[in-house]
């Protein structure tokens, strides 16, 4: 969804959703992170949760004067500077194809590319963690090459394992734990993304980045 002005909408009385205008970019995302840090300091905000070029603000106590709240948010947005980059980068070893990548054939079929090209295109970018969401430790990544974009599956898979590397539309991601998914799984990694006994529990945070390192290709 693109528009020229930021848009705000209610998520009931629980939260307010702020959506930045324009195409999804890292530059916009850096301003979203900065807006999150700012808004989190407000009394009426309990939590500021970045999404993909958008921000959900959970109310500590929903303000009676909602318009004033929205105006303040839009005003801050218009002036906010992108958050400086200080993330770290981790390499994720991935076994592509085989039992751990059961939908590689579907990506081949949809893109018309051979497996080696798909792996080359998937491993070449450095993916920035835009946000965490979906399930504990899961990272929304930006930066996938659109040439390997593949639509979500018509019938979701009921349980894909943790560590599944998959493509859904023009995004890629790695499941942090077993669960249902409508994405195409092309590989597997052993990395533990979330462990409640660790501090912090999530391996990555927004601003960090990932590189996929092919360790093996199973045909």
């Amino acid at each position: 969804m693109t528009a020229s002005h930021p848009r705000t909408s209610l998520l009931g009385t629980t939260a307010l959703l702020f959506e930045a205008p324009g195409e999804t970019t890292l530059a916009t995302q850096r301003r979203i992170w900065a807006l999150a840090l700012e808004a989190e300091r407000w009394d009426s905000v309990r939590e500021a949760v970045p999404g993909m070029n958008n921000l959900m603000l959970i109310f500590a106590d929903p303000p009676r004067r909602l318009d004033a709240f929205k105006e303040r948010l839009v005003e801050v947005w218009s002036e906010i500077e992108p958050l400086p980059f200080d993330g770290r980068c981790i390499d994720l070893p991935v076994v592509y194809g085989g039992d751990g990548g059961p939908h590689m054939a579907d990506v081949v079929e949809h893109t018309g590319l051979c497996i080696d090209d798909i792996i080359a295109l998937h491993t070449s970018p450095t993916y920035t963690v835009y946000a965490l969401g979906s399930h504990p430790g899961y990272c929304y990544l930006g930066g996938m090459d659109v040439r390997i974009a593949t639509p979500r599956r018509k019938v979701p898979v009921l349980k894909i394992p943790g560590g599944a590397v998959s493509i859904g539309g023009s995004q890629t991601g790695v499941s942090a734990s077993a669960g249902p998914s409508g994405w195409n799984t092309i590989g597997a990694t052993d990395m533990t993304f979330f462990d409640v006994d660790r501090t912090p529990p999530a391996l990555l945070r927004p601003g960090d980045s990932i590189r996929f390192k092919p360790v093996r290709l199973l045909r």
Binding site: L11, G12, T14, V49, G51, M52, N53, N54, L55, Q171
Partner: peptide, 13 residues
């Protein structure tokens, strides 16, 4: 048809 970017949601949506 609507294409939305992933964003935070809450119970009740």
């Amino acid at each position: 048809p609507l294409e939305l970017r992933s964003h935070g949601i809450v119970p009740g949506v």
